[in-house]
């Protein structure tokens, strides 16, 4: 498979999960594990353009696929607008859900460049965050969406009285 643009050829046990392959075989520990029921989304990566939960995806199923993880979204050291949005709008606290959130958001914005708040909330519904209450994650995605459309992002909350 190709991971973040690099081709890897490996023999894996049939029961190896994609998340374990990424973390243990390739040392890409940015993809996290937060549950065992495919529920939390901490393990979200993008496979052939679609966000998937890599804890319930066998590594062999990604044979020949194009896999992107959080380590691969910045280009030549320049943050992806979604990463920038999370930083600029305080979209993370402990950071554990963040890689998965970022990947779901990247996948969303590749399909829908101008999502409304409801669409953003729906798109990240499968990614649990216990720290932020999602408020600033939504702001982060709005920031990124504007940036990717070449527009000025909405002003941060702390500059506009609510």
């Amino acid at each position: 498979m190709t991971v973040n643009g690099t081709r890897y050829d490996r023999d894996v046990e049939p029961r190896t999960l994609l998340v374990h392959f990424l973390r243990e075989e390739l040392g890409l520990t940015g993809t996290h594990v937060g549950c065992d029921t495919s529920y939390c989304g901490a393990c979200t990566v993008i496979v052939d353009g679609r966000s998937v939960k890599s804890c319930t995806y066998l590594a062999v199923a990604a044979d020949g696929a194009d896999v992107r993880t959080v380590e691969g979204v910045a280009v030549d050291g320049t943050l992806h607008p979604v990463q920038e949005g999370f930083w600029e709008r305080h979209g993370l606290q402990c950071g554990f859900c963040t890689p998965g959130m970022i990947m779901s958001s990247v996948a969303l914005l590749e399909q829908n460049p101008a999502p409304g708040e409801g669409e953003i909330r729906h798109a990240i519904e499968g990614n649990l965050c216990r720290c932020t209450g999602y408020h600033n994650i939504v702001r982060a995605v709005e920031y990124a969406a504007a940036k990717m459309r070449g527009e000025e992002p909405p002003a941060p909350d702390w500059e506009v009285p609510s």
Partner: peptide, 21 residues
């Protein structure tokens, strides 16, 4: 004042090290 967090650059790149990493 609002300043962006010093913690974030590593975390948003997936470079934060948790015990399991």
């Amino acid at each position: 004042g609002v300043v962006r967090r010093k913690e974030d650059p590593a975390l948003i790149r997936g470079e934060g090290l948790y015990v399991d990493d």
